[in-house]
Simulated assay, not measured.
Amino acid sequence: MAAAASIVCSSFKSPSLQSNEVNHVGLAISQPTIPSKKNLRWFGRKDNKEMSISVRTKAMVSNEGDLLVKESPTSLDAIEDIGVVGVHHVGLLCENLERSLDFYQNVLGLEINEARPHDKLPYRGAWLWVGSEMIHLMELPNPDPLTGRPEHGGRDRHACIAIRDVSKLKALLDKAGIPYTLSRSGRPAIFTRDPDANALEFTQVDF
């Protein structure tokens, strides 16, 4: 059942000791709760020989007086049970599907996954292969503004694509006149944006 618990910290000074010396300290804690002003009370005596702090808080206490700690509903076993194996795809919004496909296909060289259905959704779109995963382009109104976004895509929401050679992508972006920024940490990575200002990171990895 629920009961009120107290945290009391007290110090007692012997009359034979100096005013700043303490020969006994008592501390009892029932729950690690940060007190608020309304449940914090100070008690003291004018002669400064006794002072205590009392904090009233709520705790779950069993009939035997033991504190019961409620377990988190999310445990490691529960996470493992759902069987996470990887990222299947990333969904990106675009204003004009053809304009976006020109960027993703003709600049980045991504291929469309023709096996994914297009006619079962109430909006236009395309699935593009990114290794064994995909990008799903969706022609829908984009709630994100085109201006006022961070120049460096790493400071914005972004999708990261692993590539073999950052220098080759850099040359392609330069040729297409597409702006980009390099990783601020010095690692081989480039950040750029698609025609709808969706931020993309390309990081160089060894396969």
Rank of each mutant, 00 (worst) to 15 (best):
N198M: 05
D174N: 11
G44P: 06
V85A: 14
D66T: 11
Y104M: 03
G86A: 04
A199S: 15
I178W: 06
P145Q: 00
A199T: 01
S16P: 00
N142E: 04
K120N: 13
I135T: 01
I79Y: 08
H158D: 01
L121H: 11
G131M: 06
V8P: 02
L172S: 08
V87P: 01
D156S: 06
I178P: 00
W127I: 07
A2H: 09
C94N: 06
R164I: 04
N96L: 08
P15K: 11
S19R: 12
P73S: 05
D77I: 09
T147V: 14
R56D: 15
H118G: 14
N113H: 06
I34K: 05
T33L: 13
K46L: 13
S167D: 15
K46H: 07
R149H: 03
D174H: 04
D66V: 10
N106G: 01
C94D: 06
P73N: 02
S72W: 09
A28S: 14
G148F: 12
I29T: 05
R149M: 11
T74S: 10
Y180T: 07
V55P: 02
V107E: 04
E95C: 09
F191T: 05
F43H: 13
D119L: 10
G44T: 12
V8Y: 04
A115Y: 07
L200N: 00
V22I: 13
A176S: 12
N106R: 14
L92F: 05
S62W: 04
S132V: 09
V25H: 09
Q18M: 11
N20G: 00
L146F: 11
F103Q: 01
L146N: 05
A3Y: 11
D119W: 14
H152E: 07
A189G: 00
S183M: 05
R164D: 15
G86W: 09
W42H: 14
G186R: 05
K58W: 15
H158S: 02
P32V: 08
A126P: 07
R45D: 12
V87L: 15
F202K: 03
D196T: 03
W42I: 10
G65S: 03
C94E: 03
K49Q: 12
F43T: 07
V84Y: 15
